[in-house]
Computed example of a mutant assay.
Amino acid sequence: MLIVRHARQSEIRLLAAIGLRAWEQAIAALADAAKMRRLAEQAFDTFLARHWHTVQLVEEGGRVRGWVAREDLDGTISDLWIEPEAQGRGFGSFLLAHIEKRIVADGFDTASARTHAQNASAIAFFQRSGYRVNWLSTAYSQKLDRDVQFIGLSKPLISDSIDAFPQNKFQEV
């Protein structure tokens, strides 16, 4: 059974390691991850030290498989990282469905996310989940230490679609 729960402050290093491994895979076509690893590791550590309380994670058999965050506790999903060897097994979809429910419960009617424009797997993941591309821009990426094209995606969240989430497949703690 999958469990979705709040992260604990003591899990910051674990979550940073998962995020870093997923980030390395996501930027493989964009940049030399080895050259930027230290900067990226520092960015994950800093983000999680400041925002661990906004993180929800998914566990399978007591093992953390990925995490999602809403840095500003609004309708924007700031991070969604799945352990590379666990990708394609539904963990991201479970987390996304969970965070969408939280977004609606917090009074927001739209969920949004962004990723670099060359992250084809993340864009496809969000599009399969009903998100649509609504902007493209260039911005400075702290993790990459350079300007990168980003793509913004959004999805209207209506109460009828929230009832369709696979609640019986994960347990909220």
Rank of each mutant, 00 (worst) to 15 (best):
S121P: 04
A122G: 11
A122F: 08
A122W: 13
I123H: 11
I123A: 07
I123P: 13
I123G: 04
A124G: 10
A124W: 06
A124D: 13
F125D: 06
F125L: 05
F126M: 11
F126L: 14
F126D: 10
Q127A: 11
Q127G: 07
Q127R: 10
Q127D: 06
Q127N: 10
R128F: 07
S129W: 07
S129M: 15
S129H: 15
S129P: 02
S129L: 11
S129C: 12
S129V: 06
S129K: 13
S129E: 09
G130P: 12
G130T: 09
G130M: 03
Y131V: 07
Y131G: 14
Y131H: 12
Y131N: 13
Y131T: 11
Y131A: 10
Y131Q: 13
R132I: 02
R132W: 08
R132G: 02
R132Y: 05
V133I: 11
V133M: 10
V133S: 15
V133E: 15
V133Q: 15
N134A: 06
N134F: 15
N134M: 07
N134H: 14
W135N: 10
W135L: 09
L136E: 12
L136C: 09
L136N: 08
L136W: 02
L136Y: 03
S137G: 15
S137F: 07
S137P: 00
S137M: 12
T138G: 14
T138Q: 15
T138S: 14
T138M: 07
A139F: 04
Y140A: 06
Y140P: 11
Y140H: 15
S141H: 10
S141F: 10
S141K: 12
Q142M: 04
Q142G: 03
Q142W: 03
Q142V: 11
Q142R: 05
Q142T: 05
K143Y: 02
K143R: 10
K143Q: 10
L144Y: 04
L144P: 06
L144F: 02
L144Q: 10
D145R: 11
D145E: 15
R146P: 01
D147H: 06
D147V: 05
D147L: 12
V148H: 00
V148A: 01
V148Y: 01
V148D: 00
V148Q: 02
V148T: 08
V148I: 14
Q149L: 09
Q149S: 05
Q149D: 15
Q149P: 03
F150W: 09
F150N: 03
F150E: 07
F150R: 05
I151A: 07
I151R: 04
I151Y: 00
I151L: 15
I151C: 13
G152I: 08
G152D: 10
L153M: 14
L153H: 04
L153A: 03
L153I: 05
L153F: 04
L153Q: 04
S154I: 03
S154C: 08
S154W: 05
S154Y: 05
K155N: 06
K155E: 05
K155I: 13
K155D: 06
K155W: 13
P156G: 01
P156N: 04
P156Y: 00
P156L: 01
L157R: 00
I158S: 01
I158Y: 00
S159I: 06
S159P: 09
S159F: 02
D160L: 04
D160I: 03
D160T: 04
D160S: 09
D160G: 01
